[in-house]
């Protein structure tokens, strides 16, 4: 795991290190330094630029989160410490948005993963027209999220002329105003539709990397299809299942387009998630300090999730390298 090693030579002035190099290390490094810098100089601008565009905005967010700043009152800017953080935890809308984020993320990821697993198992066999079926099943993943959200909110969930209400009308259920009465459910349905193909592709890749001889051995030994699935396929897929949940969660937790276009966070703030609420506070409420604080909280929560994902990824990379 490369990222946790101490750097060979941490030089003072490096923006990211807090480790102070010891004196002997410094002098040893200095002798080779001029030549090394000359050789690496041409590639440095790209590296520095990348650091700036990926890191500086985040540092700025932390800075803004410690200040009271509202674009409508430009003169009132001042350092307020952690009071923005106190305010947002007292804000019931923020807590609701955080809860919605969790519900949307897990609801979407788990349902999409189960459906994706089912589809991947179906597609992991030879049958007539498999190529075209697979292409068709992938399609929702290729749809621009804005267009997908529009498609669901308008032509599927429209209370009067939507297809869903027409279909349930066939079995005698009276029409439902989906995006107003069940906003979270509507958003999750649209997201599941969009994300199932991603899960399916990942799990299909996992299924197809199975060692065929293990499966053959199982069938020679007379294992039933369920036994084969339970004791050979599922343990093999474990890594892929974990990966699809984590990658899916990292993407879905940032969902903005669907909420903006389908429910606009409404009714009220019933379906606002964190990204949408941050957007609302920053660009409709112009409250820079608080929305920055919310952003920092979101990042910390996401990083906790991400570290889990990284450990998993590195574990597999290391396992591959060792074998």
């Amino acid at each position: 795991m490369t990222t946790t090693q101490n750097p060979p030579a941490a030089v003072a002035g490096e923006a990211h290190t807090t480790t102070k190099p010891t004196a002997p290390e410094k002098s040893r490094v200095r002798s080779d330094r001029a030549e090394a810098w000359r050789r690496r100089a041409p590639l440095m601008p790209a590296l520095i630029f990348l650091i700036i565009v990926t890191q500086v905005p985040f540092l700025l967010t932390i800075w803004y989160s410690l200040r009271s700043r509202n674009l409508l009152r430009p003169e009132g800017e001042q350092f307020v410490g952690l009071s923005n953080y106190g305010d947002i935890f007292l804000d019931s809308t923020f807590r609701q948005a955080a809860l919605n984020s969790v519900l949307i993320t897990f609801g979407c990821v788990i349902v999409a993963m189960l459906l994706g697993l089912g589809l991947a198992l179906l597609l992991d066999r030879k049958f007539f027209g498999r190529g075209i079926v697979r292409t068709l099943l992938i399609t929702p993943f290729l749809i621009m999220p804005v267009a997908g959200a529009l498609l669901w909110s308008i032509s599927m969930f429209n209370p009067t002329y939507g297809l869903v209400n027409w279909l349930i009308g066939l079995v005698g259920i009276s029409p439902v105003d989906w995006t107003s009465e069940y906003p979270m459910f509507s958003v999750i349905v649209a997201l599941v539709w969009q994300w199932t193909p991603f899960m399916m592709l990942l799990l299909l890749a996992g299924l197809q990397s199975q060692a065929r001889d293990a499966l053959e051995a199982a069938s020679v030994d007379g294992a039933s299809a369920w036994q084969t699935f339970r004791y050979i396929t599922l343990p093999h897929l474990r890594f892929y299942l974990e990966l699809s949940v984590l990658l899916g969660a990292i993407y879905v937790v940032n969902t903005f387009d669907h909420i903006y276009l389908m429910t606009a966070g409404g009714p009220g703030t019933a379906s606002a998630n964190l990204p949408f609420y941050i957007y609302q506070r920053a660009f409709l409420g112009f409250d820079i300090g608080q929305s920055a604080a919310m952003g920092v909280v979101t990042v910390i929560a996401t990083i906790a999730l991400a570290l889990l994902a990284l450990r998993l990824i590195f574990k597999s990379i290391n396992a591959k390298e060792q074998s």
Binding site: T3, T61, L274, I303
Partner: peptide
């Protein structure tokens, strides 16, 4: 860079 990969875009959007 890995951390940046995980940072939600709406956070850096404001700055």
């Amino acid at each position: 860079i890995l951390v940046a990969l995980m940072v939600p875009p709406e956070v850096s959007m404001l700055p």
